[in-house]
Amino acid sequence: MSRLLPYPLLATSLLVMWILLNGLSAGHLVLGAIIGIAASWAMTALEPAKPRLRRWGLIPGLFVTVMADVLRSNIAVASIVLRGRRGQRTSGFVTIPLELRDPTGLAVLACIITSTPGTAWVEYRSGTGVLLLHVLDLADEQEWIDIIKGRYERPLMEIFE
């Protein structure tokens, strides 16, 4: 099983993408399966670090949290744009010491932070585990540290470590 399908998630997502693009029929099902299996064989040559998911059950909850936060910060950033220069607003950099060390978890955290309007991931030092973040509306530095560590880092640590 694991020799035929070394990366089952990659193979299935490629198959789903092929079906979505070409429509569902028996021929496309076979062709998509062949492509998925061939691509996952090609991936073994690259030998990427295999992510280990410890707790699948937390993923939907995290997804819902992130979607709600993205919607909320969309509204916040839109109001900042509409207020223009009149509103008092300071933006700046925040440094956050992270405890998360798993590369996949860090990648997911980076995607979450950057795709949320108002926060942007700028730099991460893997030696010290310190993250440099840019925040558009920086009222309280400690508040942002608590948000990042409590809302995103802890569930990601539970999922990946």
Partner: peptide, 21 residues
């Protein structure tokens, strides 16, 4: 926002509005 914000690091936040919701 991309047009109005003052510095590059502020402008990085603007396009995410268009690419999320």
């Amino acid at each position: 926002g991309l047009l109005r914000f003052g510095s590059f690091y502020e402008r990085v936040h603007a396009p995410t509005l268009g690419t999320t919701w």
